[in-house]
Computed example of a mutant assay.
Amino acid sequence: MRKVDHRTLGLARAGDEEAFRELIEPYRHELQVHCYRMLGSLTDAEDMLQETLLAAWRGLSGFQERASLRTWLYRIATNRCLNALRAAGRRAVTEQSPPFEPPEPTGRDEITWLQPCPDTLLEALPDTAPGPEARYQTVEAIELAFVAGLQRMPPRQAATLLLRDVLGFGTDEVAGMLGTSPTAVKGALQRARAALGQEPGRARPDAALERELVRRFAEAFAAADVDRVVELLTDDAWLSMPPAPHHYQGPVAIASFLRAAFGFRGERRMHLLPTRANTQPALATYLAERGARVATPAGIIVLAARTDRIKAVVRFHAEGLYRRFELPEALAEPG
């Protein structure tokens, strides 16, 4: 546990903004990731981080050091996120559709606000192990499926699971952070684990196999080769495209969607740049109109690989994402 420098704390309490920044800077990135897990949206997480830091600045005189500064900051961040999730209309996202007539989806995914998280944000996390109560490693606890699963459960259950199983805070600590009893924490944690329905340590391919899967997928996708894409999928693979709610599961349904999507692409050329999101391989897509000299952003695809196949394909709308991933806003067309 990082010790508080009491001189710096005293200066911050006296209104020294530089001292306050020195106090909270070691926790900034991990608090942002925590807000992202809670809210599923980078945009909302950035807003909530600022609210957390403002609340900490205003409430620093009330920090009595009964808990660590880190625990105190997590208490503020968690409760700010819970307040946001209770706010009416926060999830009122305008429903979107693909720019073509899609086939009938397998289902509709209500988690339309989900956004990917660039791995560069995770690389900035402090090199500290989770607490002794943690059950998940950082890699598992930021995957898209995990973050989406949190969005589907009641917010206090999600908060309990994050604080206990991801961050490793003790039951009594979590009870204090959430203003409830240890018994209530244990009950919420049991329900959250059941709702998530997955155990830590699920199989992911080794790095070499993962790179090969991504290479083959990228080649097939750029070539609009439906059959080659489908060959790489598991039998229960699914495809989604937040913020559109359309959800396709299984090779037949996914192939039907891809034929429509590739038909809409027509003669336009597609280019793909590798990147990483949520500790998973991702591809930034660019489309060039026939005769155009540049290719422009067309969305980021995040892939979830399991053993030797691809389990999930999630394509995100391009708006605002390329800047966060430090990707170019245009690519020059060869020739």
Rank of each mutant, 00 (worst) to 15 (best):
R309E: 00
L272C: 10
L178P: 00
R211T: 12
T78Y: 00
A129C: 07
P297Y: 03
M270P: 01
V294M: 10
T307D: 11
R135C: 11
A244H: 12
P297I: 10
E212H: 14
T43R: 06
L331F: 08
R269W: 07
E173V: 12
V314S: 12
G107L: 13
S41C: 06
G201M: 02
V314E: 13
Q64L: 15
P126K: 08
D235C: 04
L42P: 00
F325S: 09
R265A: 12
E22Y: 09
F262R: 06
C81F: 08
Q151D: 11
A288V: 01
G320V: 12
A260H: 13
E333R: 09
F63R: 00
R265Q: 13
L49R: 00
L125C: 12
A45H: 00
A88S: 11
T138W: 08
G179E: 07
G15F: 04
T52N: 07
D127R: 15
L144V: 12
P130M: 01
L233Y: 02
A158R: 02
A192C: 08
D119C: 03
V229M: 08
Q198Y: 06
E219M: 11
L178Q: 03
H29N: 14
R290P: 00
E173M: 15
I301P: 00
P116F: 05
P245K: 02
R323M: 10
D5Y: 11
E199S: 15
S41Q: 01
V93W: 06
T43K: 03
R309Y: 03
L162Y: 01
R135A: 15
R156Y: 04
M270N: 08
A305S: 10
L60G: 01
L272E: 12
E18W: 01
G15D: 09
R306A: 11
E18M: 11
A14D: 11
E289Q: 09
R86V: 05
E51C: 13
L31Q: 07
R108D: 06
P274F: 04
L122D: 08
P105Q: 07
F264C: 10
G168Q: 02
V214A: 03
H247F: 15
P328W: 07
A224Q: 09
Y74E: 06
L163E: 01
E173S: 10
T128W: 13
A19E: 06
P118I: 01
E133G: 03
A195L: 10
Y322F: 15
P105W: 04
E133W: 06
V226F: 13
L239I: 00
A312F: 05
F20R: 02
A67R: 15
L31I: 11
E101H: 12
A188Q: 15
R290D: 08
V139I: 15
V230R: 05
L11V: 07
E95Y: 07
T307K: 15
G291A: 02
A159M: 03
I76G: 04
H6T: 10
P328G: 10
L60E: 06
L85A: 12
D227P: 00
A192Y: 03
H246W: 14
F169P: 00
D44H: 02
T52R: 01
V229P: 10
L258E: 03
P243H: 06
C117L: 15
Q115I: 05
A304I: 11
H29Q: 13
L150Y: 06
A159S: 04
S97G: 07
A222Y: 09
L327Y: 02
C81P: 05
T183Q: 13
I142H: 11
F316E: 02
A194T: 12
E95W: 13
V174G: 04
